[in-house]
């Protein structure tokens, strides 16, 4: 059965969607991703959808769901490389993906993830100092 590969890169996980998504594939991806996040203790997930040229409300909701699941598991999600046509379609469908961070390409997405995890770490340090 085909699956979408999930790559681990340091603290982050990278998912590249390059095939047409269907129900089974999405459920498998959600299973794999959530178990990877908890087993590796990842702080960030980067989903690259630059090869995705067709979306429907299902895929839109799927992206939102994955972001929600990762957040529950304490990992930030960044969706990168969305094509103009896809963005327009999602807006027309009324899916604005609130709560999902976005970036233009993988590089910018990584910068965003690093910045947010760094910010979080320093905040934790400060908290620790306050307590101490």
């Amino acid at each position: 059965m085909e699956r979408i590969p999930i790559l681990k890169m340091g603290d982050f996980l990278i998912v590249t969607i390059q095939v047409d998504m269907h129900d089974r594939l999405v459920t498998t991806l959600q299973d794999d991703l959530t178990s990877m996040i908890s087993s590796h203790g990842s702080h960030g997930v980067l989903i690259d959808i630059s090869s995705l040229d067709m979306v429907d409300s299902f895929i839109g909701r799927m992206i939102g769901n994955i972001a929600g699941m990762s957040r529950v598991l304490d990992a930030e999600t960044v969706v990168v490389g969305m094509r103009p046509a896809v963005a327009i379609t999602l807006v027309e469908l009324g899916l604005s993906l609130d709560g999902v961070r976005t970036a233009l390409d993988v590089e910018k997405g990584m910068i965003l993830l690093r910045a947010s995890t760094r910010r979080r770490l320093t905040e934790e340090d400060e908290d620790g100092r306050d307590e101490g």
Partner: peptide, 12 residues
């Protein structure tokens, strides 16, 4: 707002 949302979805 639609235009703004679409641009945000793309990361801008």
């Amino acid at each position: 707002l639609k235009t703004v949302t679409a641009a945000r979805l793309m990361g801008a």
